[in-house]
Computed example of a mutant assay.
Amino acid sequence: MPAKKARFIPLSDRKAYHRFEDVIGCKWSTLVVAAVSQGVTRPGELERYIPGISTKVLNERLRKLVDFQVLSRTEQSGLPARVDYALTDNGTKLAALLEQVRLLNAQHPDPAS
C-alpha cells in the first residue's frame, strides 16, 4: 500500500526551507560560493572578483555562509592578519549544484536578451 500523501509541508520543513532560502537564495551568496569554488578565497579578492558587491554585503554573506556550514573561515596570524575562506564538504556539493543550474540556464538563454 502506498504511503499516505501529506496535505501540507510540515512547519519544521518550512522553517528549514526558509533558512536555506535566506542563506542561498540571495544572488550574492551564489556568486560568493561560485567564486570560492574557483579559488578566490580572500575577502578583498572576492570583492574585486564579484562586480557590484559592497563590503558590507560581502561580509554579511560570508558570515551567513560560514554559519550555514557552506564555507569555512581560517584566520592566519601575522601582520597584516589574513583570512581565507574555503568550501566545506556541503559547500562543495552546493557549488556542484549551482554549476548544474548555471549550465542548464546556459542551454536556455533568456528570450528578452
Rank of each mutant, 00 (worst) to 15 (best):
T41M: 07
R82S: 11
T74C: 01
T88V: 06
T88Y: 02
D67G: 02
S72I: 04
R48T: 15
D22T: 11
T30R: 13
T88Q: 01
N90K: 08
D13Y: 09
G78N: 10
E99C: 02
A95Q: 03
L31N: 08
V57T: 14
K56V: 15
T88K: 01
E60H: 13
Y17G: 03
T92S: 10
F68D: 08
V57H: 07
L62Y: 08
K15W: 02
P80F: 02
K15D: 04
Q38W: 08
I53M: 11
E60Y: 14
D22K: 04
A96G: 03
A34P: 00
L103G: 05
V66L: 00
G25L: 06
L62E: 08
L87K: 03
L31Q: 14
L97V: 11
D67F: 00
D13A: 13
G52H: 05
D67A: 10
K93I: 05
S72V: 09
I50C: 04
L58P: 11
Y85N: 06
N59M: 09
R61M: 08
S72Q: 09
S37C: 05
L62H: 09
A96N: 02
V83F: 00
E60M: 12
Y85K: 04
A86D: 12
D67S: 09
R61Q: 10
Y17W: 12
I24Y: 06
P51Q: 11
L31D: 05
K64I: 00
N90R: 13
W28I: 15
G39V: 13
A81K: 15
V23A: 11
A16R: 15
S54R: 07
G78T: 12
A35N: 07
L98R: 04
K15L: 14
V32R: 09
L94E: 05
Q69A: 12
Y49H: 15
V101N: 05
L62W: 07
R63T: 05
I50V: 12
A95E: 05
D84Q: 13
R14C: 09
G39D: 13
Q76F: 04
V33G: 02
E45C: 06
W28N: 10
Q100K: 11
Q76C: 03
S77C: 03
G44Y: 04
R48S: 14
I53Y: 10
L71C: 01
Y17M: 13
A35F: 08
L87C: 03
R63I: 00
R42M: 12
P80E: 03
S29Y: 10
H18S: 10
Q76I: 07
G44P: 02
A35V: 10
T74F: 00
K64T: 04
V33L: 10
W28P: 00
A81S: 15
R73T: 04
T41K: 13
D84I: 06
R102C: 03
S72T: 14
T55I: 13
E75K: 15
P43C: 06
V23K: 00
V57E: 08
R19V: 14
E47H: 12
Q100F: 02
R14S: 13
V32K: 09
V57Q: 10
S37L: 00
E21I: 01
P43H: 08
E60S: 13
E21P: 01
L87I: 05
I24E: 08
T30I: 01
W28T: 14
A16G: 04
L98A: 04
L58Q: 14
G78V: 10
L79R: 15
L58R: 15
G44L: 09
